[in-house]
Design a protein around this nucleic acid. Structure first.
Lengths: 356, 356
DNA sequence: GTGAAAGCGCTAACAC
DNA sequence: GTGTTAGCGCTTTCAC
């Protein structure tokens, strides 16, 4: 037992606020003020306290803070469980996590992840239980859960702030973060038109997925903006799968007057289009331009690399978490939608329209 | 103000243990016993309490429990931050998360994710801070962090249980979960030999990545088990990147007596090999068999789909989290290594050796 | 089997 | 600016 034992912070019993107060010669309330960056502390006092804090290697006990303040430094990221279906959505999930983590990092919050199956009858109850037990400072709620009123209401009923990630707009009363899916889909369509394409086909996504819903109207907007006229024969209904993309492409490409560009509501279907074109001996992009949506990792991996629309998922999640953290600290923030624009990723699968 | 207000649990103030005790006509200690599944409660009492609990929709406040018991129902998953490099490791991370989540789910624990950059000087301090603030029940520590003594010691010093995910064995004193990388690499080599291959080349991975370290010895084991003799000319040093795989493949395949099979220490390098073979007009698998390691998503997406070794990452993480949860509940568990075997994934990139 | 009392380490409300 | 006094909602210890 050496008595410089304080230097060895190995097994030193954790310091409490009382120890710090004692060592600094102030009350615990003052220590609390310093730790929480509250005003009304003389600079000299603040320094004394800080010195004691670092000397004792003091770290506030979160559980105690939570209990006393009814708040925590935890953000919950709640999303639909992709593993229930397939792995490809990994990129999706990871990007949301990255954004949320980024926000947490700078604010010294931690991130809890809670995937859940949106088909499950008990999700609402499950989420309520999660919230009431963990009492996170806020919930970042991803699509499609963010579009389910029952879920949103369940979370609201706990009083825990919740920011929804949603691709549409007008999402109820609370603050939410969205992207401009429709506008950017129009932009993609106009881009294809600007390459000289006149017959631009569209493959619609699974109608059950709201995220995909705004892309078709965007396509229509784009046609209009480019002075192109709409033709029903250029629109096919897919279901978001590669297979459905193939099927639609087959229909579209076997016609006498086939489209010179195909814009699919997601990357998987676009990949299906590329695959069929390859099989049919139609060169992409020389004879056919193909564009997708989402910028999943597959988009870069296939040949030719897919022109697509990058969802700013990471930035959306970051924005959402930041709002929660800010709100948790300022106890404010309400209503409105922040729109974070998506971006066209022009790659190899699109090019000038072929000469007739 | 209706007085059946209890049924509407909408904005009902959260019930506390006192409310439950009162309604059940017992002391809070008894409620606590029931909630924690402790013995020494008469069945009738237990039922009374449970009835009160569900009637009041009572949920124990985790913060209060944590504070009083110095334990939490949170597991921390700590891994190297892939976003610092590139996205492909998404599959890796997701699988670890899935395993950990699986374990948490059944035990009603929640998962905290904390990626951190292992190059960062302050990781150790960062993790200590995380632990001391959040006080998770345990930490699942992924490679390569799990192989860094400094990190492991930092976590240990907090007294928080930690299970390491590691591809090697003999990993210090504490309990850890590993896979049989070496054995299964030998198995892959033997499998190639069983297809009639005599010149089986190996591309070594980045020596800095311990996870990849055991594969070369495994290759050697496999050669020996198959009665094949080792040749230095069949071994190349890569660095885990696709590019390095291409470079090594070029060297290997431009020789007069080229190998009929190439086994790469990871999938990216194997993908590089496939790419070069394609460029050189060498048919895979008719003229050249290619095998990788890890079963990243790319492995299934390239053509031909890659034969590889699937790391049981998800099951490893699940096992680790389960051990932590069990330990947290029984306050025990120490030492040893659990080995969860990897599995050969035979796909299209390997086939019978060509006739000479 | 059950209960009473004493904290866990902090923040909140208010006094000084 | 700073300190005092009460809790937050539970678990623990120990008495019964």
């Amino acid at each position: 037992m050496r008595d410089s034992s304080r230097e060895k912070n190995k097994t030193m019993p954790k310091a409490t606020i009382d120890n710090v107060a004692e060592l600094a010669g102030v009350s615990i309330k003052t220590v609390s003020r310093v730790v929480n960056n509250e005003p009304n502390v003389r600079e000299a006092t603040r320094e004394k306290v800080n010195k004691a804090i670092s000397e004792l290697n003091y770290r506030p006990n979160q559980s105690a803070r939570n209990l006393a303040s009814h708040r925590s430094r935890l953000i919950g990221l709640v999303y639909d469980d992709p593993s229930a279906y397939e792995i490809p959505s990994a990129g999706y999930v990871i990007r949301m996590q990255q954004g949320s983590l980024q926000a947490c990092k700078t604010a010294n919050f931690e991130l809890l992840i809670h995937p859940c199956n949106f088909n499950n009858k008990n999700v609402a109850a499950e989420l309520k239980a999660l919230i009431e037990q963990v009492r996170p400072a806020g919930i970042v709620l991803a699509a499609p859960l963010s579009n389910m009123p029952k879920i949103v209401r369940a979370i609201e009923s706990t009083g825990t702030p919740c920011v929804r990630l949603s691709s549409g707009r007008k999402n109820g009363e609370q603050y939410s973060v969205a992207t401009n899916d429709r506008e950017v889909s129009a932009e993609m369509t106009s881009y294809l038109a600007s390459l000289g394409h006149r017959r631009i086909a569209f493959i619609k996504g699974n109608p059950a997925h709201k995220a995909v819903q705004n892309r078709y109207p965007g396509y229509l907007d784009g046609l209009e903006q480019s002075g192109l006229k709409f033709s029903e024969r250029l629109v096919q209904q897919g279901d978001n799968s590669i297979g459905s993309g193939e099927k639609c492409a087959l229909t579209l490409l076997n016609r006498a007057k086939r489209p010179t560009a195909i814009f699919a509501a997601n990357d998987d279907m676009a990949a299906g289009v590329v695959r069929v074109a390859d099989r049919l001996g139609i060169d992409v992009p020389a004879e056919l331009s193909v564009a997708g949506c989402d910028d999943i990792s597959l988009a870069q991996q296939i040949y030719p690399a897919l022109t697509t629309i990058r969802q700013p998922l990471s930035r959306m999640a970051e924005q959402a978490a930041l709002a929660l953290i800010g709100g948790a600290q300022k106890r404010a923030s309400k209503g409105g939608v922040d729109v974070i624009p998506g971006a066209l990723k022009i790659r190899e699968s699109t090019g000038p329209a072929p000469k007739e």
